[in-house]
Each structure stands twice: as structure tokens, then as C-alpha cells.
Computed example of a mutant assay.
Amino acid sequence: MEFNSLNQYIRYIELDRERVPSFTEYPFHLPAIKNLDRLSFHPKVTYIVGENGSGKSTILESIAVAFGFNAEGGTKNFNFTSRATHSDLNQYIKIIKGAKRPRDGFFFRAESFYNFASNVEDLMLEGAYGGRSLHEQSHGESFFAVFQNRFCRESIYILDEPEAALSPSRQMSMLTRIHELINEGSQFIIATHSPIILAYPDALIYQIRDGFEQVRYEETEHYQITRSFLNNTKKMLDILLK
């Protein structure tokens, strides 16, 4: 699917396949990357889902770094590094932008959130995140403090597993927050395992198998497995625990 809105901040990405040294080596052998040519994004929300190890976080990280964000998360003003583990995929990714520049943006990465929160504290930036140390809140509260206090209108947000510390009710609140920001001109690219976060109706969903496959919400493995478990809990437990 192609979107031609010049108002969206990231329209699509392209992988420069001719420069890739080898598709048998990391990260180019990952399912998300080995068959990648062009990947288009929805002007509101694009979801990327898939099994662990499929390359969701790697592709999201490469987009974020190529766009100018710090590999461990934050805004473009963050440049801390606790341990440089990100791949060099961003060097082979070309981002095609729209005509409109974002007012702000954020790369949210659950995996390195502790390091990000420590950097916020070191720089004494708590005021921009609700006025309390992110370390003095529960994991879920600190996540939501970022979403609520630091995210703003007309911005680009790249989120890697934002549900990691959120209860189901907080995940539903996250959907409300996403909707508010979309109505204010923001764009989201999200990698998630959560069928709740994944449920935003006006969105594009890519499921990674051998490559990126566009699917409907009800076709995702996340939705189907969760529905099957909740509707047949005893039967599923009998199978799983026998």
C-alpha cells in the first residue's frame, strides 16, 4: 500500500540492497530485512509485529537512528551511550520524508528505558517528564509519564514495545493518548506484541514472516492466539500443561 501524503513525516524507507555486504550475516539475514526493498508507512499509525528474533526492534532502531534519534532512546537531543550494541543497518537505510517537518519526536525503547531515565536524571530534566524522577516511579508509571508529559503535537514517534511495563488498563489509556496525538498531527511507527496497543483502527499493520506482510488486525497471530486462549482457557491450559 502506498501513501502519498506529503504531510506525513516519514513516507517510506528503502534498503540499498546493492551496498549490503552479505544477506547471510547479521542483521541482513533477519526475516525483516533479507527481503526488504521498500516499506511504506501510514500517515497516522504503522504497526510492525512478529515473533521474537524476526527483526522488529532492529528495523525500528535503524529507522530511528537514520532519522537522527539516539540508538538508546529519547529525543534528537539525547546522545548518551551505555553500551553501543545497535547494528549498522541505518547506514543502508534511506528515509523518504514528507514536505512537512515534525515539531518534535521521540524514540521510545523499552529495552533501554532504564538508561534513558538515568540520563534524564543526570541532566536534571525531570521537569519535562512530570516533575518526578522516573526512577522514583513504578516502571509502568515512568513509561506513562513520558507518554503523557513529553509527547506533543505534530511530532514523529517511534515506539519499540511500549506495552512492556503497562497493565492492560494502561495499554488502553495508551491508545487514547495515541489518538489524541494523531488528532494533533502526529505520526507513529510502533513495534508491539500487545493486541490492545495493536487495535488502533486507522492504521497499517505489517506482520513479519519471511518478510513484511500487510495484514488486518484480526489476521495477526497476536490477536488470534490471545482470543483463542481467552475463549478456550481450560482447553488451552490442558494442552500446555499436560
Rank of each mutant, 00 (worst) to 15 (best):
N79C: 11
N79H: 13
F80W: 07
T81L: 07
S82R: 14
S82T: 15
A84R: 14
A84L: 11
A84N: 12
A84I: 11
H86S: 03
H86V: 00
H86N: 12
S87M: 01
S87L: 05
D88C: 03
D88H: 11
D88N: 15
L89P: 01
L89F: 06
N90M: 01
Y92A: 03
I93L: 01
I93F: 09
I93R: 00
K94H: 05
I95Q: 02
I95V: 09
I95R: 02
I96Y: 11
I96W: 08
K97H: 06
K97W: 00
K97P: 08
G98W: 10
G98Y: 09
G98L: 10
A99Y: 12
A99T: 12
K100M: 07
R101M: 13
R101L: 11
R101K: 14
P102A: 05
R103S: 06
R103I: 05
R103V: 09
D104K: 02
F106E: 01
F106Y: 15
F106A: 07
F107R: 10
R109A: 06
R109Y: 00
R109N: 15
E111W: 07
E111G: 06
E111T: 10
E111S: 15
F113M: 11
Y114V: 10
N115E: 14
N115H: 12
S118D: 13
S118N: 14
N119E: 15
N119W: 15
V120M: 04
V120C: 07
E121W: 00
L123K: 15
L123W: 12
L125Y: 08
L125T: 05
G127V: 02
G127Y: 00
G127L: 03
A128S: 06
G130F: 00
G130N: 10
G130P: 12
G131H: 05
G131W: 00
G131R: 02
G131Q: 03
R132D: 13
S133A: 03
S133T: 01
L134F: 04
L134S: 08
E136K: 08
E136R: 05
E136C: 01
Q137G: 00
G140T: 08
S142A: 15
F143H: 15
F144K: 12
F144I: 11
A145F: 06
A145V: 03
A145H: 08
F147N: 10
C152L: 06
C152K: 15
E154V: 07
E154M: 09
S155E: 07
S155P: 06
I158R: 07
L159Q: 10
D160A: 00
D160N: 03
D160T: 05
P162F: 05
E163K: 03
E163C: 03
A165S: 13
L166K: 12
S167G: 05
S167P: 04
S167K: 14
S167L: 09
P168D: 05
